[in-house]
């Protein structure tokens, strides 16, 4: 049996737009074990959502998978039919989005919507489904579940709607939960409730989570592994401690330097990453971060950096790291 629940190898995916090919994903590799929490961080447009959706077979038109293999829970996603993927979604992998309002149907009650998912994916009868819906609302910490089942989405607060979305996602006890900026639309005190809930459920149900976010605080708090994306590439991958205490890639280092910290004890000027995010329609030839990188060398402008491995898990894609690694090895010989 495969030791990984998720194994994405060198995924390449492009959107063929009228203005040209947008290479949204380039050689993306991700491995995730059962019950692990992976955080994907990166700026808007870096490919976080596209990576996660492609794993569910949900690539929007005009997107196309053009290379690599995607394996999930014993399935090769590349070879699956739409029908098979539909069975897999909801059963083995579920997703929650930033804005629960867009995924809940405003004209059906909360109860109807949860039951529908249960009826679709299990062989439970109507009455059992109702009981299970109530159970799920309790599981996600919604009080007065009987009353809530009869209410419509607009009658609930944002935090409660997100709890309902989680309840729906959990209806079939998926092996993997993909959360795409699930708390961005929520207030911090409500965000804390939702993150707490997700961690509790992970421990209770043993599911793996892919958490997509731009908030480094969130990944530091709940993720074991972190993928840092920039312009459609994973520029650095490692454990939370490796990324935060031993970052190797210039973009990761820059990100960590640029955020103000709540526990700072004196005012220090922030060190921003200069420049602007790249235009994905006209990416530079070599390293996509080169135009903003303080350590840029000639080769960075010409050729894509190779993978440099620092340990079993930790790797980057950077010429400087490659050079340092080779010099280090030469020195050891």
């Amino acid at each position: 049996m495969n030791e990984y629940l998720v194994e994405i190898e060198n995924e390449r995916l492009s959107f063929f737009t009228p203005a040209g090919e947008v290479k949204a994903l380039n050689d993306v590799t991700i491995r995730l074990r059962e019950g692990e929490v992976l955080g994907i961080v990166g700026e808007s447009g870096s490919g976080k959502s596209v990576t996660a959706y492609s794993l569910m077979g949900l690539t929007a038109h005009p997107g196309k998978l053009i290379g690599g293999t995607l394996d999930f829970n014993g399935h090769r996603i590349n070879d699956m039919t739409e029908k098979e993927m539909r069975r897999m979604r909801g059963n083995e992998v579920a997703i929650i989005f930033q804005d629960p309002m867009t995924s809940l149907n405003p004209v059906y009650t909360i109860g109807n919507q949860i039951e529908e998912v249960i009826l679709l994916h299990t062989d439970k009868k109507k009455k059992e489904a109702r009981a299970r819906a109530k159970e799920l609302l309790e599981l996600v910490g919604i009080n007065e579940p009987e009353k809530r089942l009869k209410q419509y989405p607009h009658e609930l607060s944002g935090g409660m709607r997100q709890r309902v979305m989680i309840a729906i996602a959990l209806a079939c006890e998926p092996k993997l939960l993909i959360a795409d900026e699930p708390t961005t639309a929520l207030d911090v005190t409500i965000q804390a409730q939702i993150l707490e809930l997700m961690m509790e459920l992970k421990h209770k149900l043993g599911m793996a989570i892919i958490m997509i976010t731009h908030d480094l605080g969130i990944v530091a708090n709940i993720c074991e592994k972190i993928a840092v994306m920039y312009a459609g590439r994973i520029v650095e991958y490692g454990t939370a401690d490796e990324i935060f205490y031993d970052p190797k890639h210039e973009y990761t280092k820059g990100l960590l330097r640029s955020i103000p910290r709540l526990d700072a004890t004196k005012h220090e000027r922030l060190i921003p990453i200069e420049g602007t995010p790249i235009d994905m329609l006209n990416p530079p030839a070599g390293c996509p971060f080169a135009p903003r990188c303080g350590q840029c060398m000639k080769i960075c402008l010409r050729e894509m950096p190779p993978v440099t491995e620092f340990g079993e898990i930790h790797y980057t894609q950077c010429w400087l790291n490659q050079k340092q690694m080779m010099e280090g090895e030469a020195a050891n010989e």
């Binding site: 911090v188 005190t189 707490e196 530091a220 708090n221 709540l262």
Partner: peptide, 18 residues
């Protein structure tokens, strides 16, 4: 409630969840 971008601080934090 604010998540601090530092795994060690995060592990040590006891959160007051409202």
């Amino acid at each position: 409630a604010i998540p601090i971008a530092d795994p060690e601080v995060a592990r040590a934090n006891k959160r007051i969840v409202l």
